[in-house]
Design a protein around this nucleic acid. Structure first.
Lengths: 176, 176
DNA sequence: GATTGGATCGCGGGGATGCTTT
DNA sequence: TCAAAGCATCCCCGCGATCCAA
């Protein structure tokens, strides 16, 4: 362990990015420094929010689909996970609400633990949604992934135009 | 001013991102936390070069292997391509020199066109090195990929300690 | 016999397709 | 019986260790 000194403003910013009670500074920083990767969203939102103090809905989503990490990703699952992660960053409580009410006839689609996804189906192939307490079912086709995204976005009450943009983009990339 | 505790590895990573002698932790962190950009390797080199006008050898290489895009990448080929790309950014003329003199008994390993790699072997699976005019042969084991990296780095006359660091890291990740 | 290099083929992940259920 | 929705088997393809050739 090492100690570093940082100014108050920066300190508060970092502290505000805590995702788990008692999370260490190292853990928070590692996540934030990953921002060049997938997690742009949370940063972007945080920055925009602190600068404008106006809520700009779906900022992280829209920036994600224009971000090279997303654009260059050719596996549908990975884009799926990125979008879910961004949705969670967008509004974690609405996301949670949307998540719990979503399921198929047998399968649960989202949960905060791997096991309940494994237990409600065969070969569901659950994957953790990055920077999120959630897991998603993954063994399904692109149409269903799209459906899961749509349902969550609808429940989160994002604007219809944004939902359309995101889905059209997702489907277009999936079918090639 | 506030004090935070972080683990050693993270500390060294942050320290390695210093751009001005005596730069404060806050300053470094603010810069890193804004880096929503992506293309760190080439970016880093360009920035460092223009700001300091001192040649800092292998900066892009070392930052690459601490970068989440590299760390999180589990496919050896992709890390291989990233490293080659960083090496080219480092010094394209030395890279070119090193590239042309490198081959196996039948196969050419690097070329500026796909065809000559296909033609000098069966199933060579050439891949383009990102942000580079070069292609590499890919259908080989990790030991050979490592050998290719080593040979190029040696020919580019990077410092032995850097070469060791990069290779140890590459091999460690490959063997898991 | 040992070493170096080539490239076949085994393994694992992704997700479309086809079967099952409602 | 037909249609629609949902599940999960199974095919395909990329990676790269292993084995074969030089």
């Amino acid at each position: 362990m090492k100690t570093i000194e940082i100014d108050d403003e920066l300190y508060h910013y970092i502290a505000s990015q805590t995702q788990h009670i008692g999370e260490s500074a190292s853990s928070i920083l590692r996540r934030l420094l990953k921002c060049e990767t997938t997690t742009v969203p949370s940063m972007v939102v945080a920055n925009v929010a602190s600068q404008t103090s106006i809520k700009l809905p779906a900022t992280s989503l829209l920036s994600l689909i224009h971000h090279s990490n997303y654009i260059d990703e050719k596996k549908t699952v990975n884009r799926f996970l990125m979008l879910l992660s961004a949705l969670y960053q967008e509004n974690s409580s609405r996301f949670s609400l949307a998540a719990t009410s979503l399921h198929g006839s047998k399968r649960r689609y989202l949960a905060t633990d791997e096991k309940s996804l494994i237990d409600t189906g065969n070969n569901t192939k659950p994957k953790a949604i990055p920077d999120t307490p959630y897991w998603v079912v993954t063994n399904n086709n692109s149409a269903r992934k799209s459906y899961i995204l749509k349902t969550i976005m609808d429940n989160m009450e994002l604007s219809p135009s944004i939902i359309t943009t995101v889905l059209d983009n997702f489907i277009a990339k999936a079918g090639e």
